[in-house]
């Protein structure tokens, strides 16, 4: 009898074990859905898979009277546009700000504490302020997401920059590098993998802020739709939408991970 920590599953068993909880959840849902529908065929809380397909067919078939586009794709497009715009802005802010604050001692002293305070303000608490100041349009939603994740990315990058071995910076100077050259050729390339990691970690938060902002004031978007059909207890729309959002988030995460491996071959094997 070995210790428990010394038993490891094989390759096939790993896949089966990983799928097991998901299959279990699906099975429990299907069983309880069937049981409820047997008692009340009009039950709205746990619809059958057939009604999911019917509802999604409706959403994909129905066109928005304003734009003339199908609701489902319009919602997806609106949400992703908001998400990518704010992620892009946050990336640029986080990278530029993080490298400068992490690398230049005077900037670190000036902005380090402010950044720490700023990143501790709960973004949703200032959502009303954003709505008051910027109105209910797209801008305040994007500001909310940027405010939620940019300080996090910035701090993360700044910490990573300050963790670069001092020897490397000295060596670069003995090779005649200027501050600009050190930033571009020594610091930036080495924090880019970390930037992708930080982005992956903040994807969850970005979706959270996106859906919160859409739920409160919007005229379209995945979060808007979920909160809209909540009034009719339309679980047959909500649940597929949640699954769709999860799938989108998963694809983004996966793509970023592949990108990180492909773009930074030197980073794959860590120093011992």
């Amino acid at each position: 009898m070995k210790r428990i920590v010394n038993y490891a599953p094989g390759k096939g068993a790993t896949i089966i074990l990983g799928a097991l909880p998901l299959i279990l959840i699906a099975a429990v849902y299907l069983a309880s859905s069937q049981a409820r529908l047997a008692i009340n065929p009009n039950d709205k809380l746990m619809p059958s898979p057939a009604s999911f397909i019917a509802a999604m067919g409706r959403m994909a078939g129905q066109t928005d009277p304003l734009s003339g586009e199908t609701l489902f794709w319009l919602d997806t497009w609106l949400s992703l546009a908001r998400l990518f715009t704010s992620l892009g802005i946050s990336l640029v802010l986080g990278l530029v700000g993080g490298v400068l604050v992490g690398f230049i001692p005077y900037l670190r002293s000036s902005f380090g504490p402010a950044l720490a305070v700023l990143s501790l303000i709960p973004p949703l608490a200032i959502l009303p302020i954003l709505f008051i100041v910027f109105g209910l349009g797209e801008f305040s939603k994007i500001v909310l997401i940027v405010f939620g994740i940019a300080p996090f990315i910035m701090r993360d990058i700044a910490i990573r920059v300050s963790e670069l071995p001092r020897e490397q910076i000295i060596k670069a100077q003995t090779l005649g590098a200027s501050t600009w050259q050190m930033i571009v050729h020594v610091v930036l390339p080495q924090v880019l993998p970390r930037l992708i990691d930080a982005l992956r970690l903040s994807l969850g938060a970005a979706w959270l802020f996106l859906i919160a902002a859409e739920a409160i004031a919007s005229q379209g978007g995945l979060g808007y739709r979920i909160f809209l059909v909540r009034r009719y207890l339309a679980m047959d729309v909500i649940l597929p939408y949640v699954a769709w959002i999860t799938l989108l988030a998963f694809i983004m995460d996966y793509a970023l991970r592949r990108l990180s491996i492909a773009a930074f071959p030197w980073n794959n094997v860590r120093e011992n």
Binding site: E167, K171, Q173, T174, V186, Q190, W266, N267
Partner: peptide, 20 residues
């Protein structure tokens, strides 16, 4: 008063750039 290219250096570790 700062490291310059007239004085080269090799440290025990971290003397080369891992991304190059």
């Amino acid at each position: 008063a700062e490291p310059m290219k007239d004085r080269g250096v090799v440290f025990q570790r971290y003397s080369v750039f891992p991304h190059k």
